[in-house]
Design a protein around this nucleic acid. Structure first.
Lengths: 242, 242
DNA sequence: CCAAAAGTGTTTGTGGTACACCCATGT
DNA sequence: ACATGGGTGTACCACAAACACTTTTGG
């Protein structure tokens, strides 16, 4: 890495470094994403991903977790899944100045209504399917985030991050079906999950009535393992996302 | 995304935005990585990943490809595989100032000896196994890049990026074996590759003598497909990299 | 009794692994 | 003749898909 002559910090046009968050949750059987309505130009009145500046003493990860806590209003954000997606740095992506944005994806199990941010904009959970079009290049970021989450479900235990601490296998299956948009065979799904050691562990003796109807389901907790062997591949796809 | 009051570009301590490159190649059956020797403090005399500043009119991808051309001395760098890895933004990672670095991985088939950079440092291909320790947090970046390349081989046609335009299946297999560090069964490898439509396509009538010894091998070109179905999983692993 | 959801069992087919074997070339 | 590397065939085994069936609850 080479440095400009004399390490003059102001030798170059300054870059602003921000984080953008694609925060997903499941509501009423549909994938939702946290969005904020912009109160200022550019894109005033448009929806955008939440985000903000990286402060001088913060890493991007720290900034992302701080923004996640601020925007969701959740008190304890420490255990939530937060993952760096990629960095967007096209010169024209913000018309005001040069902004390099590190994008993150986050998964939230059962969120409260979000706070409005420090500015006048409102924040809200909106269904993923109806989110577009967003401000800036956030359509692209959101699509990339969705691809990433879908792929992560295949070979990590990420799906449990959408679930409350104790959940049924039916709920876990619905996570996969909702994110992937495909139906899965229940007996086979059950076998695959239980055959992977450390994916889920049973809660002894516990059961939950599922909406009154049907047989009560056994409860499980997320296991210790984070990567799945073998992976839980989604069915019938030609061509995987890179 | 919120902006500081009045859009004052200098309201914050400026961030420098750089790119770092982990450029891999295969030489003499071993994985090599392109490194530069630092001529200045800090870490003078240490090896480091090549990289440099993102210019005001560039995206990170553009800057990475420019640096790749400069450091390798290759005239046509357009077709080479270049992929964003992740962004490293820990506050203390460069003692001089706040540097946010977007890391990339690149794969080069058969490279010439590299140029020395604009500063006095020399550049050289070094075996991956002997690369550490590197300057700054480049050990971490290099390890992440190696993980990423290994994982990409499983479900993309990335291995062909290590090969010349026409290659034998034996050469392709050696790419996998070198990067993964495992031996593969030749008949099964052959079947898997040929069974994946679009992975490779035969060059009609062409054959290459493989070092004089043995039967001449048929030549293949990289196919049109970029993602593999089914994936070519590496054998006998407990736990996949995230 | 019926509907709904959980859970079990069984059959069938595909694909991966391991290994034996043949082919073509240089020394 | 033999060593070396390319290429083919095959038997076995594991696992996954598909689907029938049983169990337990509420109405």
């Amino acid at each position: 890495m080479t440095m400009p002559t004399g390490y003059d910090k102001y030798a170059f046009e300054p870059f602003a470094v921000t984080v953008d968050l694609a925060v997903f949750t499941l509501r009423a059987g549909a994938l939702h994403v946290l969005l904020v309505e912009r109160g200022q130009e550019p894109y005033a009145g448009h929806w955008a991903l939440p985000g903000g500046f990286v402060l001088p003493t913060e890493s991007a990860e720290t900034a992302a977790r701080r923004e996640l806590a601020e925007e969701t209003g959740l008190s304890d954000v420490g255990g939530l899944h937060l993952e760096q997606l990629r960095t967007y740095s096209e010169p024209g992506r913000d018309p005001r100045m040069r902004v390099v944005s590190v994008a993150f994806t986050a998964l939230v199990p059962d969120p409260p209504e979000p706070h409005a941010g420090s500015d006048a904009a409102q924040a809200r959970w909106l269904p993923y399917d109806t989110a577009k079009p967003l401000a800036f290049d956030h359509d692209r970021i959101l699509a990339d985030a969705h691809d990433r989450v879908g792929a992560r479900l295949e070979y990590t235990c990420l799906a449990t991050a959408f679930c409350p601490p104790e959940f049924t296998l039916g709920e876990l299956q619905r996570v996969y079906e909702t994110v992937w948009g495909t139906a899965l065979d229940r007996p086979n799904f059950r076998r695959k999950v239980l055959a992977t050691p450390g994916f889920v562990e049973p809660v002894p003796g516990a059961a939950r009535l599922t909406g009154g109807r049907g047989k009560p389901a056994a409860l499980y907790r997320a296991g210790a393992v984070t990567t799945l062997h073998p992976p839980l591949l989604r069915p019938s796809r030609e061509g995987r996302p890179a």
